[in-house]
Every structure is written in C-alpha cells, then in structure tokens.
Design a protein around this nucleic acid. Structure first.
Lengths: 292, 292
DNA sequence: CGCAAGTTTGAATAGCCTCAAATCCGGTGG
DNA sequence: CCACCGGATTTGAGGCTATTCAAACTTGCG
C-alpha cells in the first residue's frame, strides 16, 4: 500500500482490506438481498490493489475503448462531454462505492470523458472476469441491473432539471441528489458531507456559468438551507431544500434509509478534515455570509 | 385489421404482415448482423395484432408498473416527466421501429410517462416471452443491448444540449437527431420527413417556451436550413444544420447509412400527406417567411 | 361558416451571461 | 513568521437571451 507515515489525517489510507467492499455491498444491498456467497464473490472481485489518482486527472477520453471496470473507493469522479468550441457539460458524478463500466456492450466505446474531481482511490477490475462472475449469480445480475437503472434515472432527472428547473432549483436538486447517494453508502456525517466541487464544476453540472452558480449558492445559504465551509457542505434544512428543488428521492431507488452501523461511520471520511473543524466557526461564517 | 374503406390516404393501414417487422429489423441490423434464425424469431415476436392509439393519448403514467413491451409501428410516442407544478419535460421520442420497455429490471416501474404525439400503431408483446426469446439468441441479446445503449446516449446528448447548447442549437440538434433516426429505418423521403410535433412539444423537448421555440424555428427557416409545411419538415442544408448544432451522428451508432431499398421507401409514409403537397408552394412559403 | 388548435407577433420583464476587478484562502518559500 | 502566488470565490455593471402575457392570425375540421 502506498500509505505514508503521517496517516492520522489521511483517510485515504485503507485500514483493513475488509472495508474495501463495504461501500459497494451497501450500495448493492439497496437494490436486492444478496446471499452470503454473492457477497463473498463481490468481495473477491474488488480485492485488487487500490490505485491513487490525483485531482483533476483525466481517466478516460470520449471515444476511448472500454478498459477495465473500475471501483471508486474514495473521492469523486466526474463524467462529462465537451462541445467542439470548449463548452463542457458534466453528466454524472461517481461517488465512493460506485462502479463504472459494467453495463456497456462489448466493443463499444465511451461516449463521455472521465476526470477526477479530487484525489481518488480506484480499484481496477478486469472486465471479462467481472462480467462472468456477475452472470453466474442471479442476485448480482439483478443488483447491477438496478444499479444501471439508477444511473439512467439520474440522467433522466438531470434532463428534467436542465430543461425545466430554474438555476436555483437545479443547484438545490444537485445537492440533494448527492446527499442521498452519499448517505446511502454511509458517507455523510449527519447532515453534512464532503463536497469537493468547485463552483465551476457545479456550474458545468447544472448548466449555468460559474458566476451564476456562485450566486445561486449564496441564495441557498442566505435562505439558511445549506451552509458551506471549505469543502464541507452542511444541509441545514433538508425539507426546505427538497421542497425548493422538487426533489423526490424515489428515483434513486434507495431501500434501506436507516443510519449506517456505527462501526462504519468513520470509514472513508474524506480528505483531511478532522471532526473538530466543523462546528462553531462554521456557523459563525454562515451567519456572516448571510448578513453581508 | 381495423382499416376502413377510404384507405388511399391512410398509410397507417398495414398492407402486408411482412412489413411489420421490417422497421425493427432494419434498426437492429444497424448494430449487429443477425442470423436468419434470429430474424425469424424477431418477426414472430412482433407479429401480434396492431393496436391504434389516438393522438395525445397517455399510454403510461409515471410510477406505473411495467406492462408489456410495445413495438411502435407508426406515429411518434413521447416519454416525458412532470414537475409537481405542471412543468413538463420531454425526455425522448419513440419513432417508428422503436421498441419500449425491454431493458428495465423486473418489478421496476416507469420513471416517466408516455403519450402519443400523433395517432400511432402499436403492437404489444408479452414481456416474459420476449425476454426469453431474446436471451436465447446471442445476436438479439447483443442487438438489444446496443439499442439500449443508443437510448442512453440520446439521453446524455440531451443533457449536453440542455446544459450547454443555445436554444437555436438545441432546436437544430433535435431536428438532426430525429432525421438520422428516421433515416436509419427508411422513414425519410430524401431530406424531408414527417414531423408531427407541435411547437409546444418542441419547446418541452429543448427546454424553452413555446413562443421561443417558434422564434428559433423561424430563425432556422430564415437561414434556409429547414423549411416546413404542415407536418412535413424538409432539411434544406443538412451540413449547415449540423454545423450549427455541433451535431455528430456517431452517438446514434448507425452503421448502414445507405439509402433503404426502393421497395420499402413507401411503407409507413405518414398520415395523409400526398407527395404532391410538398413542392412549389412550400418554397414560396419559406421565402415569404424570410422576407417578413 | 365557425370553432378549436396551433402559430405568429409585440412589448415588457426576468434570468442569466460576460467581462473585469476585487477578495479570500491554502500552500510555498524566504 | 511573513510575503507572495495561484486557484477559487465574490462583487458589480451592462447586455443578451428567454419568458410571460396578451392579442392576432392561420389552418384543419365538423
């Protein structure tokens, strides 16, 4: 493993091999009940050597042949498309526990590029072996079918957003979507989450300019719906945020919405933000922003 | 069959049973080479009794359980999503030869509603039987996997459109997309096609108001890129239209771009527009609009 | 002929963009 | 410790794009 010595603040280190597949299992169990045999099979599949990828690194380019499947352990990865004149549209964020590349036909090529948003940890999985194992287990087949469906639903919901929702609604909707997705794999801390997107990235996602994304975020903060500090985002009023965005979590097909078991709450805590850094001062900061 | 007597102008009548699967076969053969056994299997699947559906009829509602798969023989069907306050976003048009409902997991529900745009002819296919047949034939499995991929790609391209393209570009892009899709199944006549969308529908598709959709279409006509008459749309300058829209047909994964065989050119010619109605006067009309 | 649906037009307004500059922040080097 | 640098965020002003509302017009159809 590539862990360095000063690992206290580096949650990207993998403490036990066991945790590597916890995120994925938790995701898949949202969709179907897996047998222990199937769980073991998954655990084996994702037991490869984790690979660190730096922030803002392109993993794949539009038109590339499909390589191996990858399993995202930590960090965010962004799928995006470009227009010839440079305009960039983000399609989808891959979050910890997400798997990429299992549903495309053989011999097809990616229709979009992939780039890390922040430092990420990825495990590469050989495509053939993966597909073969999945095909042997009906539960896994079904689980990944659902997983693919959710990706499609996110895409359709994004079409609805971009076509009909206002910029502020889109902004709120995006935050809700990511919150629920992270929550489903236990990657939130109560109502706050690691949110490493720049405002440019948010703009590219919701289809507005960076400047306007900034103003929409300011509005959401002014309305006490969210508050931000560094790369952490806290949802102050989830109900209000969802009402504003016309957000309904159904499209994510989440089943178990219970808080994750305590022993898993600490895993995957993102990049160097200790628990002490998000309390008093943040609130103060939020208030300051409101009054400005 | 439900054909009435005055059938001269009613292309919705089915002349021979044979043609019913031609569209579908042509679509699938875009993706893979099918064996004659597979072609026969498909022909059998879609040999059910055609059902006429009136214009603007809702076939399915958001949240409905999956019923049978349907095969669209004639007309357009539109998938759309609603916001609670009534805003409506069109996601995708199903065109003649398209099949709906083969890729969702069992027990899932539709995340969008379906409604006919114009009178349509549909064949219902029992889901279980269909999936079983497909699964037995590797070529068909592969073909439908590609077909599903194309749907996804259209969705992603729409995200790109709504997020980054201007209204005029989106309008042009939508026209190009439908032209290529219709052309792939032989449903175009040179550079003109049946285009039964109202401007409201176009607006709901490209994410602008009806009024603005109208103005964008006027622009395209003024620039001599398209010309419209009744429900027929002729592309006067495909190159120009595509350049304007940053359109690249790759995302549709079309393979055989040759003109379809002559004997099939006349089938499925849409609703009551004789060939004589689209010549002189239309050009004059287009010019008039430009000068206004 | 008259109705209903669809298209077109105009004017006022709201939403969003561009450009440009200022500020904030974390990290780096002195 | 401070100065500085670069990336990210914030602010302001002006302009373009798209919306809304309302009315007129066109067209297909009974």
């Amino acid at each position: 493993m590539q862990s360095d010595q000063k690992s206290r603040q580096r949650p990207t280190d993998l403490k036990k091999e066991q945790v590597m597949h916890d995120l994925l299992l938790r995701r898949l169990c949202q969709y179907v009940d897996l047998s222990s045999i199937e769980m073991t099979a998954i655990a084996k599949l994702v037991s490869g050597r984790p690979r660190h990828v730096a922030a803002r690194c392109r993993l794949l380019q539009e038109g590339d042949a499909l390589g191996s499947i990858f399993y995202l352990l930590n960090g965010w990865i962004c799928a995006y498309k470009l227009l010839e004149d440079g305009r960039c549209q983000n399609l989808l964020f891959f979050l910890p526990g997400d798997l990429w590349g299992f549903s495309a036909p053989l011999n097809s090529r990616t229709a979009y590029a992939l780039r890390t948003v922040k430092d990420a940890i990825v495990i590469d999985i050989p495509r053939d072996g993966f597909l073969e194992v999945i095909a042997r287990h009906p539960g896994l087949t079904e689980a990944f079918r659902w997983s693919g469906l959710v990706t499609d639903e996110i895409s359709r919901e994004r079409v609805l957003s971009l076509g009909q929702r206002t910029a502020k609604e889109r902004c709120a909707h995006m935050i809700c979507e990511i919150f629920w997705r992270l929550r489903a794999v236990g990657e939130v801390d109560g109502t706050s989450m690691y949110f490493p997107c720049t405002q440019e990235e948010i703009g590219n996602t919701i289809g507005v300019s960076t400047v306007h994304a900034n103003r929409m975020l300011q509005d959401l903060r002014a309305e006490k719906l969210i508050c931000q500090h560094q790369q952490k985002l806290e949802i102050l009023d989830l109900e209000g945020l969802q009402r504003l965005a016309y957000f309904d979590s159904d499209f994510l097909h989440l089943r178990s919405l219970d808080p994750p078991p305590a022993e898993l709450r600490s895993f995957g805590k993102p990049l160097g933000l200790g628990p002490s850094r998000f309390s008093e001062s943040d609130r103060a900061d939020a208030r300051r922003t409101v009054n400005a």
